[in-house]
Amino acid sequence: MDPVPPHPPQDHAPELPAAALSTGAVARRLGVSPTTLRSWERRYAIGPATREDGRHRRWTAQDIARLELMCRLTAQGVPPSEAARAAVGAAPGGDAVPESAAVPETTAAPGGPNALPLGEVRPECRGLARAAVRLDAPAVEQLLESAVVEHGLVTAWEEIIAPTLHAVGRKWASAGERYVEVEHLLSWHVSCALRRVRPAAAQLGSSPVLLACAPGEQHTLPMEALAAVLGERGLPVRMFGAALPAEALHEAVRRTGPRAAVLWSQSRSTADRALVRSVTAIEWGLRGARGHSALLLAGPGWGAGSPDPRTERLFGLRSGLAVIENALLSADHAEPATRAGPATGTRA
């Protein structure tokens, strides 16, 4: 451990505390956009006490504590101007927080008694949760975009987005009808962020990967994440979304002749094993050159194993992507007779 440095002379500026953070780091920690922090500083004088070289903002623990209080207050509907006055007044040496701006004991703001059950997660995950609880749509959008750009889509999904979605879902399940608005806002912005991922040029003439949710299944975000990452890698995708009826799934397989089909089930009530058997039996292509699709089952509804020996289970986006790529590679090396395209002339 390094020795404690000597105190600087009085005519020199003191060194910054080790805990002083940049505006970007504070924004990620609190789940607000850097633009919001600068706006609060400009409008309500709730900025950092120190600037590095007179230009760069550096937020100390005391500065951050004020911001955390302001975030909790605004999450409860307190106007930003009043929340800022309360946060400044609650600082060490300041006045107590006015009763009119006090945070109720039932607050859902992260860090309060009803905080989202996140556990050990990345700081970006906590910031995203805080923004979602505050219903701060611009911050949620910016944090999601930053997560995808900085960490890549797979890591952003597995280590930031999915843990936050799970925490919101658990909170909703344990709190009756509360927090539904948080889940809906977060889910909407996650879906928008996934659709903004630019796909690479797909290989011409290659059969697609078919993605669908089981009949009655409304949870589409995991399939949207998979569609985005497959598209990012230049693999053609046919995404059919939520609750695809059984007959429509059969027709989609026959008409597209996918090399692999992924069927998502969130709960046991939508994990239809009879449907699995019927889909694995589908043949497509010209007579005499019929082909089969690899059926891959994803989602907790299917349980730990595969309900049919002709299927394979997917667990997680990263490992599932590897299984899909292996299935596609096996299809590419199959005999030509088993790789014929879908039958032509099928009904629309």
Rank of each mutant, 00 (worst) to 15 (best):
P6Q: 13
P9W: 05
P14K: 07
E15S: 15
L16Y: 10
A18M: 06
A20Y: 10
T23A: 13
A27I: 02
T36Y: 11
L37M: 09
S39Q: 05
R43V: 04
Y44R: 06
A45H: 15
G47K: 09
A49Q: 04
A49L: 06
T50F: 05
R51T: 11
E52K: 07
D53H: 14
R55W: 10
H56V: 12
W59N: 04
I64L: 10
A65I: 00
A65K: 11
A65P: 06
L67S: 03
T74Y: 14
G77P: 00
V78R: 04
P80N: 08
A86H: 01
A86E: 00
V88A: 13
G89P: 08
G94T: 10
D95P: 14
A101R: 01
A102Y: 12
V103N: 10
T107Q: 12
A108R: 12
A109G: 02
P110D: 02
N114G: 08
L118R: 07
G119D: 07
R126N: 03
R126E: 12
G127T: 01
G127S: 07
L128P: 00
R130E: 13
A132I: 02
R134W: 05
E141P: 00
E145T: 04
E145Y: 02
A147K: 13
V148M: 04
H151Q: 03
V154G: 12
V154A: 15
W157E: 06
E158C: 01
E159A: 06
I161T: 05
A162E: 01
T164S: 10
H166E: 02
W172L: 14
E177R: 10
R178L: 11
V182E: 05
L186Q: 09
S187M: 02
H189D: 02
L194R: 07
R198N: 08
Q203K: 09
L204M: 08
G205Y: 01
S206W: 07
V209N: 11
A214V: 00
T220L: 12
T220P: 12
L221T: 10
E224I: 03
L226E: 14
A227K: 00
P236R: 14
P236K: 07
F240E: 04
A243E: 03
A243V: 01
L244T: 13
P245W: 02
E247H: 14
A248P: 12
H250N: 05
A252P: 04
A252K: 04
A252V: 03
V253Y: 06
L263V: 15
R273T: 13
R273D: 07
R277G: 03
T280M: 01
I282C: 10
I282F: 11
G288K: 03
G288Q: 05
G291T: 03
A294L: 01
A294Y: 10
L295I: 14
L295S: 06
L297Q: 05
P300S: 09
G301N: 04
W302L: 02
A304T: 12
A304H: 15
S306R: 06
P309A: 09
R313C: 08
L314F: 03
F315A: 15
F315H: 15
L317Q: 09
L317C: 13
R318C: 12
N326V: 11
A327G: 00
S330E: 12
A331V: 06
A334I: 05
A334V: 06
P342T: 04
